[in-house]
Design a protein around this nucleic acid. Sequence first.
DNA 1: CGTCTGGTTGATCTAGATCAACAGGAGTGG
DNA 2: CCACTCCTGTTGATCTAGATCAACCAGACG
Lengths: 237, 237
Amino acid sequence: MSQCDTTHDCSNCPTRHTTEWRDLDKNQLASLNLAKRTHAMEPGETLFLQGDEADGVYCIQSGLVGLRYFDEDGNSALIRLCGTGTTVGYGALLSKQPYATSAEILTPSVVCFLKRSIVSDMLANNPKVGERFLQHSIRDLSESESDYARSLTKTVRLRFLHLMMVLYERLGYLDENGNPIVELPIMRREIADLLGAQPESISRLIRSVQDEGLLKFDGKMVLYSDMDKVQHEIGTS
Amino acid sequence: MSQCDTTHDCSNCPTRHTTEWRDLDKNQLASLNLAKRTHAMEPGETLFLQGDEADGVYCIQSGLVGLRYFDEDGNSALIRLCGTGTTVGYGALLSKQPYATSAEILTPSVVCFLKRSIVSDMLANNPKVGERFLQHSIRDLSESESDYARSLTKTVRLRFLHLMMVLYERLGYLDENGNPIVELPIMRREIADLLGAQPESISRLIRSVQDEGLLKFDGKMVLYSDMDKVQHEIGTS
DNA sequence: CGTCTGGTTGATCTAGATCAACAGGAGTGG
DNA sequence: CCACTCCTGTTGATCTAGATCAACCAGACG
């Protein structure tokens, strides 16, 4: 983890308007800014570990963070990808429970840490903050339930295609020839962990959707050769 | 759905202290009581349907309610069982989104309906109410994520055994001989829908855990013949 | 009675897991 | 510079949990 970085300032943070802090006034922003610690982090580092006491929340300035759940016999699954502008760890902090998941850095990221006391201050001094956390929690819940339902009713293949579309929505762009492209931020192993599958199955899946002309993989580059067909197969859920 | 029932009174509602309304003062309780509509409902009826506009929240006085998620091609899964003392439908109401799931009555239930305006009043007049909803949402989220993770990492058999233990914690008692017993509130089809499996698979599962001496099934009665073995197999998650 | 619905069982099929081998970098150290 | 070792990813062979399809049974109910 890098040294603390003082070049970031909450009051002109580009992602602030998507976070719980969007309603803060000038003074509150100033104390937030004073309290926050900004860190540049690399893949493999963790923000917190499942089971640890919650000590604050983490705002993702840029990069990609994965929430991983470990069960008692060492299996694990990635249950959520969190990107720029999202706050992680709030559930444990606000419910005074240990973290239910670990948060691992998946791509080089810049993350601001806000310790418990400053979060409490903000909650106490600005009722909007609590409302924002409530909205955030409700949204996370509805996403989680829909992921859960999908895992109960759909095959790995369909969930894989769904994931590829989600990644396209988040990270997709058009290359110089106007082809829809994604550069995968995660490796095969992590795709598997997101789907509750094995990496070998992902390899085979990649192979077959490629043979069928749906997507073209080259390392981390994915070309969406027939997005309509993909959309059609997953039923645009 | 039965006629509205005026014998219930919020101020001495036995489940109120587990709900969002536990911090209301006398006056607030009185207006809540005036506004609420109490209904006795039977299996097969629904509280609301996925996709409908949210019009209020439902407090389950007694009984069991299931939240079911339908996907675009008609498949569905039960993603949550909600029992006595829980509030359902708050997420859609508070986020002004349509219901993300349908809520179906699974056993004869008594449910109080609180329409949007009274919920808004309470939220506006008592900051504790918002906090309670936040806590509720955070708890639901963490449960949902742990269910999701379980679905990604565990077999149907293990999840079935886990479900049987959850049902025991909620509904279990000792019979006249001191044997741990549950009377299943749901049928095989619903067990399957909770696990993302087929009813035939549940039948076979029941057969094998029975043959192995873990549980004994007789219709809806389940005898936990070797709870230690069950606990051991699921790793007490 | 017949008809329905919920549940069980049997036979068969298949998506995906598992186990094993191997290929291509990316370091790392001599 | 080469040899060696990780590490990620791919492929092949095989296995299995659970799905699917079909038959059947028992109780409920008009």
